[in-house]
Amino acid sequence: MISEILQTLPQVLVDGLTLGAIYAVIALGYTMVYGILELINFAHGEIFMTGAFVGVAVLFFMSGAGWLAVMPAILALLIVLVVTSLVTGVLGMGIERVAYRPLRKAPKLITLISAIGVSFLLQDIVRFITEWKRGNYIVTGPQLFDSKIGLDFSSIWSHFNDAILKTSSVILLVSAILMMIGLDFFVNKSKWGMAMRSVAQDRDTAALMGINVNKVISLTFFIGSALGGATGVLFAMQYGTINPYIGFILGLKAFTAAVLGGIGNIRGAMFGGLLLGVLEMFASANLQKLTGGVFTAEYKDVFAFGILIIVLIFKPEGLFGKAVTEKV
């Protein structure tokens, strides 16, 4: 059995890292908003989904106008990514302005309810626009990259099988890593990043130091949502078919990743996402073999959720977070 698991391990790792990169970037959005507002932004998974749809719509438009045929695929991807992240970034800012800002002083329960409302609203708006325009809300976008690369793992160690890597996964991984490095740099080195960190630490004191708190919160939502939307585009490229309900379970898992890494901690979220992706792929590949057929691969969602519960019981502050004592 062990040799079987070892054989598939390279492929599991490759797929897991690809999936984990998606979780990681979405988890960033959750963790940034939580760090600054202490609010679980339920709508973030839906922003990711909207990003996927906007990206596919832009691609359809470009191929309809005949631009896709004449420009290199990588340039087209860049255009789609930029347009989508602008759209979803503004969308995120708008959501904050309309649904969260009036409730900043309200009990947290009320804000959470508003967030759930936004998430449902977005799902249905995307659903009916897509269904209206295309007749079906399940969409398969045009593929920009469909070549595959064989990775020769068996020459490293004879127990491994070779792995296959889609070009889109490479692009996904590279873009995700670039986004993460860029964000890390922005938050830790730039002036706006410093403002964000100070607002997260203490909103009132930050305001006294001359920081425009509302602007910083808007910016946080813009960046988080732009990253989420861009990931949506990458997701649509990697997995092909999208529907308006993908954001929910993916958002749930990304949130798990954020908790795993310590909510509010940006580097933790990146690590948590990658770890969760690999664990989940491992589970879906090997759960059936390991449990003698009792649990099938269908249970991989249960597995991710189990991780969330275990983390919450034994280390609620996450792997890299600091335990916070509540002040009265």
């Binding site: 309309v98 649904a99 009036p102 309810i113 508003s114 409302g117 998430s119 449902f120 977005l122 659903r127």
Partner: peptide, 17 residues
Amino acid sequence: SKMQRFIFGAILILFAI
């Protein structure tokens, strides 16, 4: 009859605010 999510979402936001 397909717009339940829309209606429920709107109710949640409007009542929360």
